[in-house]
Design a protein around this nucleic acid. Structure first.
Length: 577
RNA sequence: GCUCACGUAGCUCAGCGGAUAGAGCACUUGCCUCCGGAGCAAGGGGUCGCAGGUUCAAUUCCUGCCGUGGGCGCCA
């Protein structure tokens, strides 16, 4: 257990239990006036018919000698127990954490299979900032859940099926398959989709062809399927270019489009019927989930099969639940999907539970996120009023980063500058998306996200690069100081050591709340504590070799935690910038 | 109308039922014989949307209102 708060809570728990007469939480929290404070005594006082300060004293008496861990335990205010760790304890814990491959982060005590549904762009449609959020947040969750030992299955539920494909295929035929494939291949997905859409709306003849084509597609017509595959392949090739630029983990192996569930749709209907919850309503087959009403306060159905016999998204979402639980063996299903779909997903979950497809203890969690807003506080649009293309946005970020690097580090070679600009530009976009509470809308601001000041990726990357530079300058191999247990004398050394040890807690907070911004906040605090340390404690000019090695060990530990933390967010940490 | 989010410094955002609500930017003031100043230290700036309630203790939990945004039967 690397987090000293967890350790001390475990240490005090028996003492609290002895005083309370049953198990109770010591409520260890960060404190302004000590390393930590235990607040558990205040809640106990009333039940014990005593004062909080008296309870606190009894707890401390019951705890016995804790001097191996704590330098002081002081009862303060109404009954807080202020806790100060010994320097030796913190130093030893840092050494232990640094000898661990996960840098002190606890492994999951309950590893299981988690399916994460994220990204989900549509075939023959441009990726936009909504996909950016889903992709970046989902990718971070994949990394962090894998890190603590879960088996994570990535599922990219691309929109590759449904009625729009009638018009898309007819448009493909009109353009000539070669031309169309080329257009899609170079990434002009939006143009393609819009042209098809325009024809569909303008021409009855085209509309009729498109509808007939949908029938052919669903009927499995070989020629139609071949053209459909062209659309899908050219689109996924384009998605892969974006994923590669974005530096996320998704590959073709993770593709699990709507079309993949075709054969599972009829069984969904059958099984709902067998469960006795399928109802006919206005010609459609639906399930009424408890607690959902429409605008007239009538029960709101989840439509399983439309009046025309076709299926829709609720059906395939239910098929997904079955597939993920029964075939993939997942116990936890995460959906990184925009907040507007909250009710839909709640209904799917409610029906899945009613049908018995999500047993007790199985989790279906909507990892909801808000919209990306422009400077006008409205959903981000380009100057022309259209959705912003993801590739254009990423290109611009890299360009801006490159300009900044060129200005601030002119001596860097062109090759290196290109590589570093990529890490900074992409890191900045991802971090700005990850660093605030995902459920809120967030304001897209180039200048802020690419700034080297404040809670930004470049600031964190800079802190890391600076540490690498210290070792370069001193010609010291970082590995060589890894066995050193640091000496914590100065306040800044102590603060930094304690922060390093809190990495464990930060990672677990991100996992428990599925909120990457918890880890971001931690890394920003780590960088702040480091710069403060570096300002006050000479490293290479330390007064003795012992102190120098101790400080180098702290610097190395900081850089390792920073790099690992950024890696869990899907962000690179260049060694110079 | 019903329903789900959100509302914290001028701006962008943290904040776990606990002590005096924090950070970054911007603003003011220090620190350049400095290891990467892309920095550090300090200062000003708040009726935590409003009103009740629960609690020893509420920015945090509950209820109502106000404001903003979203969702509400065959699109996904």
């Amino acid at each position: 257990m690397a987090d000293p708060f967890v350790s001390i809570a475990a240490r005090l728990a028996p003492a609290f239990a002895a005083v309370a007469g049953n198990a109770c939480d010591p409520v260890v929290r960060p404190s302004d006036r000590a390393d930590a404070q235990a607040n558990g005594a205040l809640a106990l006082a009333k039940a014990l018919g005593s004062t909080p300060r008296d309870v606190a004293q009894r707890v401390l008496d019951a705890a016995g000698d804790v001097s191996d861990v704590l330098a002081s335990t002081e009862i303060a205010g109404p009954g807080f127990i202020n806790l100060v760790f010994t320097n030796e304890y913190l130093a030893t814990q840092v050494a232990i954490a640094m000898a661990d491959e996960r840098l002190g982060v606890r492994a999951s005590t309950d590893p299981h299979t988690v399916v994460i549904d994220y990204s989900a762009p549509n075939v023959a449609k441009e990726m936009h900032v909504g996909h950016l959020r889903s992709t970046v947040i989902g990718d971070a969750l994949v990394r962090v859940l894998s890190f603590v030992g879960h088996t994570v299955i990535k599922e990219n539920h691309i929109g590759d099926w449904g009625t729009p494909f009638g018009m898309l295929i007819e448009h493909l035929i009109d353009l000539g398959e070669e031309n169309a494939a080329h257009e899609l291949g170079v990434g002009d997905l939006d143009g393609f989709y819009k042209q098809a859409r325009a024809k569909f709306e303008a021409s009855d003849e085209f509309k009729t062809r498109a509808r007939q084509r949908v029938v052919l597609l669903q009927g499995g017509d070989a020629d139609t399927l071949r053209m459909w595959r062209t659309l899908v392949q050219e689109s996924t090739r384009y998605f892969n270019k974006v994923y590669s630029q974005l530096d996320v983990l998704l590959t073709d192996d993770d593709l699990m489009g709507e079309s993949a569930y075709n054969d599972l749709l009829a069984p969904v209907v059958d099984r709902l019927d067998a469960a006795g919850i399928l109802v006919e309503s206005d010609g459609a087959e639906v399930v009424f989930a408890d607690g959902f009403t429409n605008r007239d306060n009538e029960p709101l159905p989840l439509i399983i099969r439309k009046g025309d016999g076709g299926y829709n998204y609720a059906t395939s979402d239910l098929a997904c639940v079955i597939d993920r639980v029964e075939r993939l063996g997942a116990r936890s299903l995460l959906y990184v999907v925009g907040a507007p779909q909250a009710q839909h997903l709640q209904m799917v979950e409610a029906v899945a539970r009613q049908a018995g497809w999500l047993p007790e203890g199985y989790i279906m969690n909507h990892v909801a996120f808000g919209s990306v807003l422009g400077a006008d506080r409205k959903i981000l649009k380009s100057r022309a009023g259209e959705t912003v293309k993801l590739t254009a946005l990423l290109d611009e970020s890299i360009e801006r980063a490159e300009a900044a690097v060129a200005e601030k580090n002119p001596s860097m070679s062109t090759e290196e500058r290109t590589a570093v600009a990529n890490m900074i530009g992409i890191g900045a976009v991802k971090y700005s998306d990850l660093s605030s509470d995902r459920v809120k809308d967030y304001l897209f601001d180039w200048d802020r996200m690419l700034s080297f000041e404040g809670n930004t990726a470049p600031y964190l990357q800079y802190a890391h690069a600076r540490i690498c530079s210290i070792f370069r300058r001193a010609s010291v191999d970082r590995v060589s100081v890894r066995g050193v247990t640091p000496q914590l004398v100065e306040q800044q050394e102590r603060n930094l050591a304690l922060r390093i040890l809190r990495f464990d807690a930060a990672v677990w907070e991100m996992i428990d709340t599925l909120s990457p911004h918890k880890l971001c906040t931690y890394l920003f605090d780590l960088a702040s504590d480091f710069t403060s340390f570096y300002e006050h404690c000479p490293v290479l000019k330390a007064e003795s070799d012992t102190i120098r090695d101790s400080r180098l060990a702290l610097a190395d530990a900081t850089a390792r935690v920073m790099e690992q933390g950024l890696q869990l967010l899907g962000i690179r940490a260049p060694e110079q910038m």
